[in-house]
Every structure is written in C-alpha cells, then in structure tokens.
C-alpha cells in the first residue's frame, strides 16, 4: 500500500518527463532525440541533480537550504586553489567536498543552536559563503592546471562510448542510489522523515532531533560540494561568481519530484526526474531556437503546475481515506 503510493508519487513526475520529452521529440528538430543530445542532457543534469540529493534530505526533514549555489562556487574556488598549490587532483576534489561539508555543518549548527529558521540562516550563509568565495579568489577566476578532473563531465571522447555517459553522471547516479537506500533502510533515514513529518513527536519519541538536523545540513553541504566538483570539471577554473541562483533550480527539482516544503515528503527518484524535466525543457527550447525567456517561463509554469497536481492528488487521497 505504502510502497504502491510512493511508486505512484514518482510515476506522476515520470509521466510528466516522458510527456515533455515526447513533445520535443515530435515538434523539435531530429537532433533532439539523438544519443548525443541525450548524453548532453545527462551531463547538464548532473550538477543540479547531485546538489538536489542533499536538498531532498533537507526538504524531507522540513528545512530548506538557500546557500547551495554559493557553496558550489566556493568549492570550485577551493579546488582551483588547491590544484594551483600542486595538490593531487583527487585530494583537491576531496578538499572541495570537505569545504562543502563544512558549510553545511555551519548551516546546521546555526539552525539548531540559534533556533533561527533555516530560511533565514541559509539566506545569510548564501551571502556569507558567496562573499567568502569572492574574497578568497580576490574577485577573479582562479586558473588551475588541467587535470583528469575535467574529464568528469566532459563529452565522451570517441572510442569511449561503452561508458554511455561520463564518470560524473555515473557518480551522480550511484550517489542517488545510496541516498535513496539511506532514506528507506537506515535509522538516520527514518529519523529524517520523522523529524520532517512531526518534529514534536520525534522529540517525544527520543529521536535526537538536533543531531539529525546537523547531519542533514552537513550532508546537504557534502552533496553541494560534490556538485561543486562537477561544476569545476565543466569550468576547469575556480569561479566565485558561478552557480548564481542554482539553489532555486535545485529546490525546484525536489519540489517537481514530489517534495513538500512542509516536510515529511519527497523521494530521490522524484528529485532526479524533476532535475531531468528542467534540463529537458532547457535543451528542447534551445534546440528549437527558442529564446531564453521562453524556457524560463515554461520552467516556471511547470513548477507551479507540478505542485498543483501533487496537491490535488493528495486532497483526493485524503478525501478517499475518510
């Protein structure tokens, strides 16, 4: 029953994705459904999709994180600076992810200690982290030696077609599976849902609410950090001004995928589908030569329609239960 309903929850967005894809495949140019373009869509979804994994946990726990875009920019700067200093690329990437965790931990720490709502705390860190990135980089891009990190999200070179998509996309998918498993099969995952569903009850039941929140925001920071690594792979430089406003795309992905901003609801599969929907719209509009403003309006409309459909479905479910 529950299994079925959570499946249905993902089926809605999935149907939407297939519909939009089908629409562009029919009315768009032939190149839209080429395997080349599919790979591009996957690559473009990876950054938002990875950050959205953490955001899904945060939103399920009843919170929000507006600082994601800033963390991504900060992480690219950190990686570039580390590479410049001659650090091994792998360690540089780890350092970037670590910086992300630190930012997320600070978010969680402030939210639980100061008892200030997540919206305000992360609105603050959105500015603080962005400012720190700019200060750290002296308000310019940081060049870095080219390393294998740039391959993570680069288009597949000829002869490597067996990978289907670049390693970065596989990384995103693997992380998605892990996080989905954590939500269903671990105590932490169940605690996150409990806190988001009813924080008071969770506290009464002995769920360590504050600890769960700190972990959730730290994980949010971690996934933003990994998204930062992927972002760096695309840029190959550290850019403190990159990923402006990406937090909104990330939140939109979660919400289109069935996440509820009042907490307790959301799914990883839905979130990935939500992220794909936005990329498909972008790609489809671009290939049809439609201007940027059309994409923006279409994406905005999709967000509202998706959430309205979801609420309507829930009301029906609720009235059927009476």
């Amino acid at each position: 029953m529950k299994r079925f309903s959570s499946l249905a929850q993902t089926l809605g967005p999935l149907a939407g994705l297939l519909f939009i894809f089908g629409l562009f495949a029919v009315i768009g140019p032939e190149s839209f459904s080429s395997s080349n373009n599919l790979e591009t869509i996957a690559r473009q979804t990876a950054i938002v999709g990875t950050a959205a994994l953490g955001m899904t946990l945060i939103i399920i726990s009843g919170g929000i994180d507006l600082s994601v875009g800033s963390i991504i920019a900060f992480v690219t700067v950190v990686i570039a600076a580390l590479l410049q200093a001659g650090v091994d690329p792998f360690l540089a990437a780890l350092g970037g992810a670590g910086a992300g965790i630190l930012c997320g931990f600070i978010n969680g720490f402030l939210i639980t200690r100061l008892r200030v709502v997540p919206f305000i705390v992360t609105l603050g860190t959105l500015l603080v982290v962005r400012g720190a990135a700019k200060g750290f980089a002296h308000e310019q891009k940081i060049d870095a030696p080219l390393t294998w990190l740039k391959e993570l999200l680069a288009a597949l070179p000829p002869g490597e077609g067996w990978r289907i998509v670049p390693w970065g996309v596989w990384l995103t998918l693997a992380l998605a599976f892990v996080v989905a498993g954590v939500l269903v099969y671990t105590r932490l995952g169940r605690h996150i849902i409990a806190v988001g569903s009813n924080e008071q009850t969770a506290r009464l039941c002995g769920v360590p609410v504050d600890r769960v929140k700190v972990i959730v925001y730290s994980l949010g920071g971690l996934f933003a950090g990994v998204a930062g690594v992927l972002q760096f792979s695309r840029l190959t430089v550290g850019d403190p001004t990159v990923a402006m406003g990406v937090e909104l795309d990330v939140i939109a992905a979660v919400v289109i995928g069935g996440g509820s901003l009042s907490g307790g609801e959301g799914s990883i599969a839905g979130t990935i589908v939500g992220a794909l929907i936005m990329t498909v719209i972008r790609s489809g509009c671009a290939q049809m030569g439609l201007p940027n403003w059309v994409q923006e309006m279409v994406t905005g409309g999709i967000i509202v329609v998706a959430v309205a459909l979801d609420r309507w479905r829930q009301r029906r479910k609720a009235s059927a239960a009476v």
Partner: peptide, 16 residues
C-alpha cells in the same frame, strides 16, 4: 505531539 499522524502505524510505534 503524541503521534506523527501522516506516518504509518509501524513508523509511529518504532519511531526512535
């Protein structure tokens, strides 16, 4: 406070 009413019976009994 007593129950998370949108969660299942099982989740409520075994919450922590």
């Amino acid at each position: 406070e007593g129950l998370a009413v949108s969660l299942s019976v099982a989740d409520n009994i075994t919450m922590n």
